[in-house]
């Protein structure tokens, strides 16, 4: 169980690094997915540790929210890309495209 939590923390750290360091907005979003996956991992680990499947149900909800986030985020990226080609966050400094 401790190993699962440690793995989850390491994956979360990699996700944080990817989100902060990458300049490509798509890869930033994917780093968020890595972080969500790390959290799912610890939820499932707790669920197994306590012999209670509620943690797994919670992980299912996390997956549903991740799907919604991916949909809206990628919609935003496509809308942004129509105004300003490229995916660098440094270029996206105006609220009005």
């Amino acid at each position: 169980m401790d190993v699962v939590l440690a793995l989850s923390a390491v994956l979360f750290g990699i996700g944080v690094f990817g989100f902060l360091a990458r300049r490509n907005i798509l890869l930033m979003l994917v780093s968020v997915e890595i972080m969500l996956n790390a959290v799912n991992l610890s939820l499932v680990g707790f669920s197994q540790h306590h012999g209670d499947s509620r943690g797994q149900v919670l992980a299912l909800f996390v997956i549903a929210v991740a799907a919604a986030e991916a949909g809206v985020g990628l919609g935003l990226i496509i809308a942004l890309n129509r105004n300003k080609p490229g995916a660098h966050v440094a270029d996206l400094i105006q609220l009005k495209g």
């Binding site: 979360f12 750290g13 990458r22």
Partner: peptide
């Protein structure tokens, strides 16, 4: 591929990973 601030990002990521 990384912004200029990537060492800071690496420190933040390592901090979280150290929680493991």
């Amino acid at each position: 591929r990384f912004g200029r601030h990537w060492p800071l990002a690496a420190a933040a990521g390592l901090g979280f990973a150290a929680l493991g």
